[in-house]
Amino acid sequence: MTTITPQFAQFDAEALYQVLEAKVKAALAQADNVAVIGIYSGGAWIAERLVAALNLNPAERLGFIDVSFYRDDFSEKGLRADIKPTQIPFDVDDATILLVDDVLYTGRTTRAAINELFDYGRPKKIMLAALIDRGERDLPVAADFIADAVSLQPGQSLQLQRADDGSFTLIIQSNA
């Protein structure tokens, strides 16, 4: 686990993505009926790249999910202005689903995504990939694939950003 101190403001997100991609490709090489669903927004960006790396047809095997209405803390957080529609263009039943998020933290987003996913059908298997695992879970959720685990200072969060060329940057933000 990497401990982040305030003087470091940025990760090599591209190197982290390469680590995650290699783990996912190795594990899913023999899987059948694979589909990838990215959690908006950072997970959706990573999912787009993973679908290409897995040589899957994005029109048929890539979906996106917005968990806003499925979160158990919806009444506390309220409705975000940037809600996007969930798009799952494939049959979820009996599929091996790779659910992708950028940062795994409390587990609440993952729980909400799984709840929403089951509204679309019953997958054969759901696997979770995250670029970064922050730990400190509120729920018993674990990723199958992570690039790195980090510990942040209180009041800090991570934000994945995507440039126009598709490259990633991961920055630490102070929430104070």
Rank of each mutant, 00 (worst) to 15 (best):
A13L: 10
D101R: 02
D72H: 10
Y120I: 10
A31C: 11
K84F: 00
I4W: 07
F168I: 04
Q10M: 04
Q7G: 05
L139V: 03
A112G: 06
A149V: 13
L131E: 04
A31K: 08
A176I: 05
D148F: 00
L104Y: 02
A142G: 06
L16E: 10
T5G: 03
G42R: 08
F118G: 09
Y40Q: 12
G121V: 06
F74K: 07
S167Y: 00
S157P: 11
G38D: 13
D148R: 12
A29S: 05
A44Q: 07
L99V: 02
L104H: 05
P6Q: 12
A35K: 13
F168N: 04
L62W: 14
E21W: 01
N175Y: 00
R122I: 08
L16G: 12
D93E: 11
E116R: 05
G63T: 03
A163L: 14
V34K: 02
I97N: 04
P123M: 07
S75M: 13
V100K: 01
V92P: 03
T109G: 09
M127C: 04
A129M: 13
K125N: 10
W45N: 14
N115K: 08
N33F: 01
F168T: 01
A44H: 04
R122W: 01
I39S: 03
V51M: 07
M127I: 00
E76N: 09
N55D: 15
K125C: 08
A52S: 14
P154C: 11
R111G: 03
E116F: 02
Q161R: 14
Q161A: 09
I146D: 02
T106S: 13
D148M: 10
R162N: 02
Q7A: 08
I39M: 03
A52E: 15
L28P: 05
A163W: 00
Y105M: 09
D101K: 02
V141A: 01
V51E: 09
G107K: 08
T96S: 14
F8M: 11
V141H: 02
N33I: 00
L104S: 08
R134T: 04
R49K: 15
A130R: 02
A29N: 02
D32F: 00
A142C: 08
K84C: 07
I126A: 03
E76Q: 12
A31D: 14
F145I: 12
F64P: 04
S174E: 15
